[in-house]
Amino acid sequence: MPPSPSPRSGSGGPPASTVELVVNGRSRTVRLDNRTSLLDALREELRLTGSKKGCDHGQCGACTVLLDGRRVNSCLVLAVAASGRPVTTVEGLAAGDRLHPVQQAFLDRDAYQCGYCTPGQICSAVGVLAEAAAGWPSAVTPPGRDGADGSVAGLDAAEVRERMSGNICRCGAYANIVPAVLDAAAATAGAGADGSDGGAVGARS
């Protein structure tokens, strides 16, 4: 559903729109200040505070969610622009008590400390697995391998480091995040890169 804006005058308040937020498979229609970022809509309006705010400027990745199955910095997306589009947050990855393979791998590898970057890292990693499965190259993918391979098995440590570099971890858990993502890649290989309802990039439409 496209957002329906209200006229600037008349209400007295800041311009607002009615927005349909489709998050983790659930749809809710809310009235939002047009300035509201997707991140703030999730955190303040829906009280889904799993997505974190580390910078609010697209510089840290703590707010990473999957939008249309692709990872985005939700602090850089206006909520009105996400109206009607499926969003997956860290809260939507586990199937009941069963953790998503990426979540499980982060636990097993102690791929975090304070945990504040972690939801963003995990959503980002889910996106990475899908991107790799769809054959998307990264800056370190050797020429000739780009896009042709199309398998998660193409992920190695160098690929993971490169693809996960949009997510800062000030606690410095990188040396554990890389094996965690590789574990998750191995666990999901063959079963589709993404165990969630977020869908895989490229494959979805």
Partner: peptide, 21 residues
């Protein structure tokens, strides 16, 4: 020992200061 609050942290249920309902 793995972190006792690990599950909360990886599922987004751990509440930080700004996030208390």
């Amino acid at each position: 020992a793995h972190r006792v609050e690990g599950r909360e942290k990886v599922t987004g249920r751990a509440h930080y200061a700004y996030e208390y309902p």
